[in-house]
Every structure is written in structure tokens, then in C-alpha cells.
Amino acid sequence: MAEFKSNSKLERILRAGHFAFTGELGPPRGSSVEHVREKAKPLKGNVDLVNITDNQTAMVRMSSWAASIIAKEEGLEPNYQMVCRDRNRLAMQGDILGAYAMGINNILCLSGDHMQFGDHPGAKGVFDVDSTQLIHMVKKMRDEGTFQGGAEIEEPPKMFIGGAANPFAEPFEWRVHRLAKKVAAGVDFIQTQCIFNMEKFRKWVAQANDMGLTEKVYILAGVTPMKSVGMAKYMKNRVPGMDVPDEIIKRLQGAEKGKVAEEGIKIACEQIEEFKEMKGIAGVHLMAIEWEHKVPEIAERAKVLPRPVV
């Protein structure tokens, strides 16, 4: 077996062939350390890795690297999210060195939601590099030990490199090629957009399998339990790139009064069961949006506990 690329716990879990289970933690819109610690509690021991979002939806929040360090102090394995919207290549590489120096071993390279979505719509979007190029830059830093500009790095940061994939957005036939580009750029693992349209997802994974991509990258399927019919409709109509089939909304509407969230969790667990058996899928990324305290229950019911110790 080849050497490990990083000190990432996720890498060890995936390499050992375990079905990974990862979660998410959104930093606060303030500097409360307690807030992060509270959110971290229900995740501890229930997930292998926690994505720490980076100014998500273009709203200012505690920086991802700082919240990642707090999460690490709480015993979690942070996945430092980095968006291309807010930093140029100098700031990116500097932050990567700093994050690695502080014991962060995973990074998720993203484009980032457009500034227009947030509460600073007049901000200048940086977009010096795009997400695929960011992946390539981090790989070069790690494997070649050089900065993007070519100079040598003293103690290169050994990051386990993640990326995102949206298997649903149009043009659908392009999606697997975009994945292929990220694989060629050097991505180690992929966390997908929230999956609701299972039929389309199966097709996308089949394409990725046929192209041999799933042998080169670990794909974690994105799962978001719906809390309410309103949330499902909002995601269908208002969140760009989201594909929520009518059957999902109908099923939630059909739930007994007071049992809609329960139905949402049930749907999520059924999905997870299917992903465990799906060829080319290495784990699940659970995005329990503002529902971190439900993660232990969902993990329990999805039968992914206990988490492997590696």
C-alpha cells in the first residue's frame, strides 16, 4: 500500500475501506468560542470529519481556520473549507500553511456562493483562481513542495484535498467531466451537493464508475434531512443548483401532523442505506443544516455507529 498523503483521519478511514460519515459545522456570526464548542458536542464520536464552512452564503462568519482549530480542540477532525471568492492565491497559500501548522489536515476547495447572496453584495469578488485550480495548487504544494509561483516550500503542507460536485446541475452530461477535471487536478475526495433526485444521482455515479473515476477519488454522497415541507420547497425553488423532485415534497406532505421532520430523517436514512451498497460511493456527507443536535440520532438510525477508530 502506498504511503499516506497526509495525516488526515479521513484518509486513514477511507484507505482502510470503511464507509465514511462526515458532518458539517457552520461558524457563528460573532466571535463566540462557546458557540463553536456547543455545536461541536453532538458531532463528536458520531462523524469522522467535520466541514467548517467558509463565509457560507456570502455572509461574514468566524473564519473557517479559527473555527477549525476550536473544533479540533473539541476532538473533531476539521475539514477546512476554502472558497475562491474571498482570497487571492497569496492569501490562500498563506492560510493553507497556517492551517496546516495548526494541525489541520483536510481542506475542501470551493468556488463559493456569489457575493450577491449575502449581506455584503457590494464586495469585490476575488476569483483569482477557481475551485479546480485551487485543488491543483494545494496538490502542487503538497506533492511537489512548491508554491504556485514556483518557489520551494520549507515543510510543505500535507493536506488531504477535497472538492465538491453537483451531479444535477445542467448540463447534466457535463457533470461527470467536471468531476474528471477535478480528479486530474488532484482531488482526493469529493463531497456532493445534497442529493434528493436519486435516479439522476445513480446515473452520475454509473458514469463516474464507467470512466474509472471512482477508482481515483473517494466520493461521499451528500445527504440533507428535510425538516419541513417549507424547507423542501425553499430548496427546490430558491437554492441554485438544487434538484428536489416532487415525490420528496409529496412524501413530506403526506406525513402525519408533527411527523414531517421524522419523515425527513426516514428518507435520509433510506438514502444512506442505498449509498452503503452503491458501487463507487465511499461514504456519506451529512449536511444537517442548523440541526447539528440531531446528528447523533441520525447516525444511530442510519446504522453508521460506532465510528471506526483508526
Binding site: C84, R85, S111, G112, D113, H114, G125, F127, D130, S131, T132, Q133, A164, A165, N166, A169, P171, W174, R178, K181, Q193, P240, G241
Partner: peptide, 10 residues
């Protein structure tokens, strides 16, 4: 987003 390897997921 001036992406060079797009389209993005949005």
C-alpha cells in the same frame, strides 16, 4: 465568478 473550469454547482 469568472470561472475557468466551469460551470459551478450553482
Amino acid at each position: 465568478k469568472s470561472l475557468m473550469n466551469g460551470p459551478c454547482g450553482g
